[in-house]
């Protein structure tokens, strides 16, 4: 196999042009490696070759981000790279933003793997960690050797399309995107080992740090329910028979809206559930058990509520990601508000 062609991006300082006084240095491309590229090259041995280095001043880049990204992209593309490496930027803020931005753009626009390295508090981390792999480095250039030791092997793996291990194993900052991979030990063994460490008071790493959980405060009560228009929204998967919009039985990618004008009762002939996470037998016999259209119609006639809204909204909550659920809710809420609905009864399963 021929050598992997690498292009390296560095700033004016690592390009040995000068310090802050040269931060407005305009972009230039050079053949081969420059500065820290030498250590990368040594680390790659004969597997990869730095064919070109692109250098740009930190201030110059950050003041002309859009134009510069374009210009740099063209310079990088000329070298026909298989892999792109930026930095490492350590704790240099503007350099970090430049490395993150260019690496993410190269990955997206040129469709080749890209990698950078930064100190965890560099502002470039938060902006780009979900877009490109960022190796965790020390906060100053004194950590160069350590950074290259982690970056070079990961860069090669990315270039060869090999599976990427966990952040701890590979040394990158967690991307915030959950990625599956095979561990060396099965889950039960990892659990026993983690428990023994926890019992001994030793350090252990959880495999899933708890998120900041969203708590929703209930809305204030409706002042006069007898005048209110009430809508039914369900995650219990009630759909017209045959599931015309093909809502998934689990991990829903969509919700649907159905007209119930003139319908007083959801019968087994006309309605069913598409939900795969609960016993469907009773919902299929009488879908009002999940979506109580019959009772709300009665309440409407008796004047206990204003009226039932003409449409109901439905999806399946089963295995549906929180992100999708939030997206559905925002879209449904917007329509309900513009349709003048005063209150919603949310039913699950």
């Amino acid at each position: 196999m021929s050598k992997i062609r690498v292009v390296h991006y560095i700033n004016q300082f690592f390009g040995q042009i000068g310090g802050e006084e040269k931060a407005d240095h305009k972009p230039e491309a050079r053949e081969g490696f420059v500065g820290p590229g030498m250590a990368f090259q040594a680390s790659f041995k004969d597997k990869a070759e730095i064919v070109g280095t692109v250098i740009c001043g930190d201030s110059y880049f950050n003041e002309n981000i859009e134009a510069e990204t374009e210009e740099l992209l063209t310079m990088i593309e000329t070298f026909k790279p298989d892999l792109f490496i930026a930095g490492p930027a350590f704790n240099a803020g503007r350099y970090g933003m430049a490395c993150g931005s260019i690496a993410a753009t190269v990955k997206e626009k040129l469709g080749i793997p890209a990698l950078t390295g930064m100190y965890v508090e560099n502002p470039g981390v938060d902006s780009f960690k979900s877009k490109v792999h960022i190796v965790s480095t020390k906060d100053s250039a004194a950590g160069m050797r350590d950074a290259i030791k982690k970056m070079a092997p990961l860069a090669l793996k990315l270039a060869l399309g090999e599976p990427i291990g966990s952040p701890e194993e590979e040394g990158y900052i967690p991307t915030g995107i959950r990625v599956n991979f095979f561990e060396e030990k099965r889950g039960s063994e990892r659990a026993v080992e983690m428990l023994l460490k926890k019992l001994k008071g030793e350090e252990f790493t959880t495999e899933y740090p708890m998120p900041d959980f969203d708590r929703v405060d209930p809305s204030p009560a409706i002042k006069d329910i007898t005048k209110a228009t009430i809508a039914l929204v369900t995650s219990g998967g009630i759909v017209p028979k045959g599931n015309p919009d093909r809502i998934e039985s689990s991990s829903a990618s969509k919700y649907a809206k159905y007209d119930i004008e003139g319908i007083d009762d959801l019968t087994a002939e006309e309605y069913e559930t598409a939900h795969g996470g609960y016993d469907p037998v009773y919902a299929n016999k009488d879908a009002d058990r999940v979506l109580p259209v019959d009772v709300l119609r009665e309440f409407g006639k008796e004047g206990k509520i204003g009226k039932l809204h003409r449409y109901f909204y439905t999806t399946t909550g089963n295995g549906t990601s929180v992100a999708n659920a939030k997206k559905f809710a925002a879209a449904i809420a917007k329509e309900l508000v513009s349709d003048g609905v005063d209150a919603v009864i949310l039913t699950s399963t």
């Binding site: 889950g187 926890k198 708890m210 998120p211 959980f213 990601s321």
Partner: peptide, 19 residues
């Protein structure tokens, strides 16, 4: 896409998780 919160409930005492 792996970008969503993973569980339907959470608590800070669940600080040792195997996934």
């Amino acid at each position: 896409d792996g970008a969503s919160q993973s569980l339907a409930d959470a608590d800070e005492s669940a600080n040792a998780v195997v996934t």
